[in-house]
Write a protein that binds this DNA or RNA. Structure first.
Lengths: 235, 235
DNA sequence: GAGTGGTCTAGACCACAAA
DNA sequence: TTGTGGTCTAGACCACTCC
């Protein structure tokens, strides 16, 4: 525990406990350094971290103030399928159902300029259906996909290995699955399912779009972060 | 854009683009400082940030290396109801259905030592049902709740004002709602719904538990973060 | 104008892990 | 044993903003 961490944790505790109400002014870097017997740069490091995590607002010449609290965001873990299944202590499997087909995820046709390939398959946990996946991959961004074989390996697994450090956007909703998906998942009509969509890109270029469908009773997104600092607000 | 930011962004770009593959060694702080014409502390700040965001691993005596990429997590925005409704350009409303009742969110009875109060109500968007809410509040942690009136204000709104800087844990799943919830939401039987659970505490003490149910076609969790750094891994 | 945060420096010491 | 990251210092300069 560094000195900067100590200053950070003391202030974090006093803010989270309500002892320092929103709007309250926090000691200047100079005073904080003096009262803790350290250099100003050390106090600055602690206050910069509090500001980065949204606990305080800092204004030149005015000082630092406890921020107005908001329910900002939560981290929902959305890992890849082998990880999900493995963390439940089950064996992972993959079964390709359809593909590759040539069509576009938005238009459904291959009319426009971009070239996409399209697959469907099922992720298995202990040899039983766990999630249905629809997958599109942009051939322009990932030319290697033309030589890939997704019969024994899911596209997501292959992509993670082939294109590291992509970025993603997610959407979650509840749906009544189509009959094709119901058959693949072996669920009854009317069974509510969780649908997770993921758009992935790399350096401003679309890489892939995936749509996962989980039986409602077999999966839930469970946010994992324990009591602690909220994620950094931005940059 | 500070000098440390420039070093950070250059390395971030080269890692995200794949130019620096996972496992690749990154220049030492000393060399990085020299090549950029700055002090080692400045290079250290940039590398510390890359490590905090999980892009590199750092080991004493060995150096810094590009980390193995994983789909780690996504930020799903889970704000409070007035914010959700307001951001859709709709007018927000609240209607209390039941409560306060005395029972415990886990046991359903009031037998054990803890004292909880319990409500049910509906959040409205343009005067139409938007979400059903079940709410428990721990009287021991929030004694002020005994004088609160949730006829015109939702418990969550009141709590946000009364107890700033709480912490929360969320879970999301797809469910078939109970008949009571279906009536409140005015949805047909068999309509899939998104259920969001939220546990809230403050300083290790349980504050409240809420269960929101949304009609599947009226709401989806949409993760908002644009291409950019992943949230800090931990601490 | 004055005082604050934001940033950087040049140097230092230590802990720790790799060689 | 050695070299790296981790941390801290004392001082400095600048930009911005509040008074």
């Amino acid at each position: 525990m560094s000195q900067a961490d100590r200053i950070y944790h003391e202030l974090e505790r006093r803010i989270r406990s309500g002892e320092l109400a929103p709007g309250t002014q926090i000691p200047f870097e100079q005073d904080l350094a003096q009262s803790h017997g350290c250099a100003r740069a050390t106090a600055n490091k602690a206050l910069a971290r509090l500001a980065r995590e949204g606990l305080i607002d800092r204004r030149r010449k005015a000082g630092s103030f406890v921020a107005q609290p908001v329910i900002r965001s939560a981290i929902l873990n959305v890992p890849d399928m082998p990880t999900v299944v493995g963390s439940r202590g089950q064996s992972y499997g993959w079964q390709l159902l359809i593909g590759p087909l040539q069509d576009h995820p938005d238009t459904g046709s291959d009319a426009d300029g971009e070239s996409w390939l399209h697959w469907a398959g099922v992720h298995l946990a202990d040899a039983r259906p766990f999630a249905h996946e629809l997958r599109w991959i942009a051939c322009d961004t990932v030319p290697e996909v033309s030589t890939a074989d997704f019969a024994t390996e899911a596209p997501g697994t292959w992509l993670l290995r082939t294109l590291p450090w992509t970025q993603a956007r997610h959407r979650v909703r509840a749906v009544a699955p189509s009959s094709a998906v119901r058959r693949a998942l072996q669920v009854k009509a009317g069974a509510p399912c969780l649908q997770l969509e993921r758009w992935t890109w790399r350096s401003e270029r679309a890489v892939t779009y995936a749509r996962f469908t989980f039986p409602g009773d077999k999966y839930d997104l469970d946010e994992a972060f324990a009591p602690g600092p909220m994620p950094a607000r931005k940059d």
